[in-house]
Write a protein that binds this DNA or RNA. Structure first.
Lengths: 331, 331
DNA sequence: TTGTAGGCGTTATCAG
DNA sequence: CTGATAACGCCTACAA
């Protein structure tokens, strides 16, 4: 059996109150008793039971992270960053990979509430507003509007779309395609698409919007990309994420289309992994560390003052463009 | 305030016992009262408090996952798989990225124990045996011996090293180098190295062992790899992980060394991500899903019968070789 | 400076 | 079939 407070108290020859006092470091305690108690705890290898303390009203220091999947390098890096920031603040993380699964997301939400987590970072968005409002916990959202009560942190998706088109245009492309998720309300892709469209308009070019479902298997995606490349006159492609962009590069290679001479390609996300292991890809870089930091800070604020009205509903962080060989021949 | 059992009881006009009965579905209850209670719960949006139930002796259904980092695609895929399997069994996951940080790993261990998790999957191994023995919780380890009481699941690292050498030899390489982590006791790389050495011996070839620290930055790694390639006569390289292998391919490209004609390269891990986005890399594929499943199953067994002596100390899962263009020119 | 006792939200053992 | 009530391990007024 695990040692409990009373065991320590008995061993140290004091009352539980005293032990509790040294653990939580409050009230008056003589140096001698404190040491006694400390020793007793060491000897018994005593660990206070978090459940019991939390039950009493102390917070659990647990935060739930709901994201689609950590197999996507972008989410992996974001989640890892968030975990680091939270750890530094004394929080521990419950990982909830919701996939595209409404039920799993709902079940996780229920579980997080049952486990009395202090707050939630929501990055998967299969569910509607109602379910998130029900929860009654501090929540911050990544990249999607969930409710009037839930602040949103995201990068400047609109500018991302704009920068990509400007880059391709500058590189000489005049038939610029958009390749990404199917349109869906509230999806970050929407803003990227808007940036794309507006900028094309500015240049007096025609829109070409192609959708590849995010959930489709990569080989299917690759197939439809090859179809697109061989049937179209595209000389520039704005992809809504890096992985899709890499598939475009692969397809181009197979079809002997020269990058960037015949076709220029941009990605979106700019994870370290892709930057390092696909150094040929030009891309829009999201400030992952800043996003993580802001998510954590805003969440902390909500946890500290859950009743306070939101100071700010939407936080938008700047993106940067990383030029590599897929748009301009360098060195 | 969150509704509690007594609120539901009051609303339904019954006692807490009765409510508890319908929640846990045991004992006799009339259909009518059951419905009453159900309705009351719905109306109040009642969620039982896990802390309280666990405090009473019920398990928390929480499992701690300690891994170095989910930024490495291999761990990302493994952790995601484990999370899926655990979710299916009703467990929730606390994510602990320990990095190379002894203190963080120790702190996480302490926290997991304090939070009364049901068990731990340990995949980061900065700490020694004593600390893991102290915990007094069901633990399973991935790829490293932690103690006599902790079962190990791993892939057949030795055969992996062997297969890699055999492939390179078959492809015509005679100056076969080993590139990976520095040697360290208990490290899975050790077995891969052993497989490499034994097989070279069998072929009557000389060992060439080069170490790149796992924790080094990729650009430093790339630098030392280029140095290696330009100074050596290597015509085959066994890498201990895919990411290193990709760096070798990059270095070769920069140095205008033709793959596979002049240099043949194998990786290790075989994640889906690398298979898809680096389809040119031959590699040893670890059975990630099977590993995850086995980790979860063995852990479940330990949780069910913590006192039982271990049935088996070591579980080794077979690896497979995936042949791609980095060893043999295909199609 | 230290100890006693009640309560946090549930479960489970007894009686009714 | 249902209801009191004593735990679970810890915290914290209130006493001493």
């Amino acid at each position: 059996m695990r040692p409990k407070l009373t065991d320590v108290a008995k061993k140290a020859g004091v009352s539980v109150t005293t032990v509790s006092r040294v653990i939580n470091d409050y009230g008056y305690i003589s140096q001698k008793t404190r040491e006694n108690v400390m020793n007793a705890m060491k000897e018994l290898n005593y660990q206070p039971n978090s459940l019991a303390r939390s039950l009493h009203g102390k917070s659990t220091n647990l935060v739930g992270l709901i994201f689609p999947s950590i197999n996507n390098p972008f989410f992996a890096e974001l989640v890892e960053m968030i975990e680091q920031k939270l750890f530094a603040e004394g929080y521990k993380v419950i990982l909830c990979n919701a996939g595209n699964d409404k039920d799993k997301e709902r079940e996780y939400l229920r579980m997080l509430s049952a486990n009395q987590v202090d707050g939630i970072v929501a990055g998967a968005h299969n569910l509607g507003i109602e379910e998130y409002n029900q929860v009654g916990l501090p929540i911050v959202s990544f990249d999607r509007k969930l409710s009037d009560q839930i602040p949103i942190i995201s990068c400047d998706n609109y500018t991302g779309g704009k920068l990509a088109v400007e880059e391709l245009y500058a590189a000489g492309a005049r038939h610029i395609y958009f390749l990404g998720n199917p349109h869906q309300n509230g999806n970050p892709t929407d803003q990227r698409l808007a940036g794309y469209c507006d900028t094309l308009d500015r240049f007096g070019l025609t829109h070409h919007i192609h959708t590849v479902s995010f959930s489709e298997s990569p080989s299917l995606k690759l197939f439809s990309i090859k179809k697109l490349l061989s049937e179209s006159v595209a000389d520039g492609i704005v992809c809504t994420d890096d992985l899709t962009a890499i598939l475009v590069l692969q397809a181009a290679k197979e079809l002997q289309i020269k990058i960037p001479e015949q076709l220029k390609v941009t990605g979106f996300d700019g994870t370290k992994l892709v930057q390092i292991y696909h150094p040929e890809l030009s891309t829009i870089v999201q400030p992952i560390e800043d996003i993580a930091l802001l998510l954590v800070n805003v969440l902390k604020e909500r946890i500290a003052q859950p009743k306070e009205p939101l100071k700010q509903m939407q936080y938008t962080l700047p993106v940067t463009f990383l030029r590599r060989n897929s748009t301009f021949k360098l060195n």
